[in-house]
Simulated assay, not measured.
Amino acid sequence: MGKLSELPRSFNSFSQSGALIVSDNVLQGGRVFDTSHVDLRSENMRAFYQRMANDSNLESIILPVGHGLSIGRVKESV
């Protein structure tokens, strides 16, 4: 779990343009977005989502369906 925030960096090294990256159970009952809730898992998930959101090679969204679904798509190479 400690390496979770490094995953988006490695996505680009093995994912082709248009590839989808899907994660489930991402909301953790809202703990991920409640910054007053501090634990290693929530902090790692926050870092993972921040890295995905800031990666210019990815388009990403979090859907509040069930326990949460995160979808990322590797952008087309220019």
Rank of each mutant, 00 (worst) to 15 (best):
39 D>L: 00
77 S>E: 15
26 V>L: 05
77 S>V: 15
9 R>L: 07
1 M>R: 08
54 N>D: 15
66 G>K: 06
20 L>Y: 10
75 K>V: 03
37 H>G: 03
17 S>W: 01
47 A>Q: 08
59 E>M: 04
34 D>E: 13
1 M>Q: 11
18 G>F: 04
15 S>Y: 05
63 L>Q: 08
77 S>G: 13
21 I>H: 12
48 F>M: 02
21 I>R: 08
16 Q>A: 14
64 P>Y: 02
78 V>C: 03
33 F>W: 02
78 V>I: 09
32 V>K: 02
54 N>H: 12
28 Q>K: 15
40 L>R: 04
2 G>R: 09
9 R>K: 10
8 P>A: 00
15 S>N: 07
49 Y>W: 08
57 N>T: 11
8 P>L: 00
35 T>N: 10
67 H>G: 11
25 N>F: 10
29 G>K: 01
70 S>G: 03
19 A>V: 08
49 Y>A: 03
75 K>H: 05
78 V>M: 06
45 M>P: 03
16 Q>G: 10
17 S>H: 06
31 R>C: 09
38 V>L: 08
57 N>K: 06
50 Q>V: 03
54 N>S: 14
47 A>L: 07
8 P>T: 00
62 I>W: 10
21 I>W: 09
27 L>E: 08
28 Q>I: 11
27 L>W: 05
13 S>N: 12
55 D>S: 04
78 V>D: 07
3 K>G: 13
42 S>P: 09
52 M>H: 04
46 R>Q: 01
28 Q>N: 11
49 Y>R: 10
28 Q>L: 15
78 V>Y: 05
44 N>W: 00
73 R>G: 01
24 D>N: 11
13 S>D: 14
21 I>Q: 12
61 I>D: 10
7 L>S: 13
21 I>F: 10
28 Q>T: 09
30 G>C: 12
25 N>H: 15
72 G>N: 14
36 S>G: 10
30 G>E: 13
49 Y>E: 06
50 Q>H: 11
